Amino acid sequence: MYTESVENYLKAIYKLSSRQGGGYASTKAIAEVLEVRSASVSKMLQRLEKMGMVHHRSYQGVQLTSQGRRIALRTIRRHRLLETYLYEVLGYSWEQLHSEAELLEHYISDLFEAKIDEALGFPTHDPHGDPIPSKEGKMPDIQHIALANVEVPGEVVIARVPDSSAQFLCYLKEVGLLPKVSLKVLRKEPFNGPLLVVLGDREQVIGREVAGKIWVKKKRDLIDGGRIDEENS
């Protein structure tokens, strides 16, 4: 059993490293993600290195060891299973899931994790579209691109959205930018201007910053092992 702080650090390092294709996570980046001082991060990284959880390289940062990666993926798996359970079984709203799962993920047992996985029918993605690592500690390979980078004209399906900001999730829900929803990109204004998309039977303007946070895949691709629902096409 590891402390909440240890698991949060390992999870943050995993996500930061993944963004760089398996590179190093810097002290500064970890401090920004966890909203703590760099001095506190340095102290914890020394502790994690002694525990065999990370490798440290001067002037570059840290990488997870196989043990650190295993704990990080277990924590992420529990978080995403909990989000799915809270949403599908307990009726939590979309924007409430992340903060609640953050509290619970550190305290459930292996048995409880297995029970909710079974009760949910062994889901592969959480309500925000994020892949759920397997119980063996494997993260599914995903091939998504940011909506902001889609070529015009382009027909895509929303695959994932960030879950950490409740305010941002409320906005996405309000305008209908949800996972598995299809849309067509009609135009991208120059100089980092907004996108014009067709969403259902209406046109919607989406700011470039927002579009950069929404991950999509081509409409012909599969989602969750099945074809895109026609009702969302």
Results as ranks from 00 to 15, higher is better:
residue 39 A to S: 15
residue 51 M to C: 06
residue 206 I to D: 07
residue 115 K to E: 13
residue 228 I to Q: 09
residue 141 D to E: 13
residue 164 S to Q: 15
residue 126 D to F: 01
residue 198 V to F: 00
residue 227 R to Y: 05
residue 18 S to G: 10
residue 58 S to F: 14
residue 13 I to T: 04
residue 88 E to T: 06
residue 190 P to Y: 01
residue 119 A to K: 11
residue 221 D to A: 08
residue 191 F to P: 02
residue 59 Y to V: 11
residue 219 K to Q: 10
residue 71 I to S: 04
residue 231 E to R: 15
residue 25 A to L: 04
residue 178 L to G: 00
residue 165 S to G: 04
residue 20 Q to K: 15
residue 122 F to G: 02
residue 132 I to L: 08
residue 73 L to K: 03
residue 39 A to Q: 13
residue 5 S to N: 10
residue 66 S to V: 08
residue 226 G to N: 14
residue 24 Y to Q: 04
residue 46 Q to C: 11
residue 70 R to E: 15
residue 176 G to Q: 00
residue 158 I to Q: 02
residue 165 S to I: 03
residue 210 V to Q: 06
residue 222 L to G: 05
residue 115 K to L: 15
residue 230 E to S: 09
residue 190 P to G: 06
residue 177 L to R: 03
residue 109 S to P: 00
residue 129 G to C: 04
residue 6 V to H: 10
residue 98 H to W: 05
residue 94 W to L: 14
residue 67 Q to E: 14
residue 100 E to I: 12
residue 154 G to W: 05
residue 23 G to E: 01
residue 35 E to R: 15
residue 109 S to N: 01
residue 126 D to P: 01
residue 143 Q to G: 11
residue 83 E to Y: 00
residue 170 C to S: 14
residue 160 R to C: 10
residue 54 V to M: 07
residue 167 Q to G: 11
residue 144 H to C: 13
residue 211 A to P: 06
residue 25 A to S: 15
residue 72 A to V: 01
residue 76 I to A: 07
residue 142 I to G: 08
residue 215 W to D: 14
residue 203 E to F: 07
residue 206 I to M: 01
residue 110 D to S: 11
residue 91 G to W: 03
residue 31 A to Y: 07
residue 122 F to L: 05
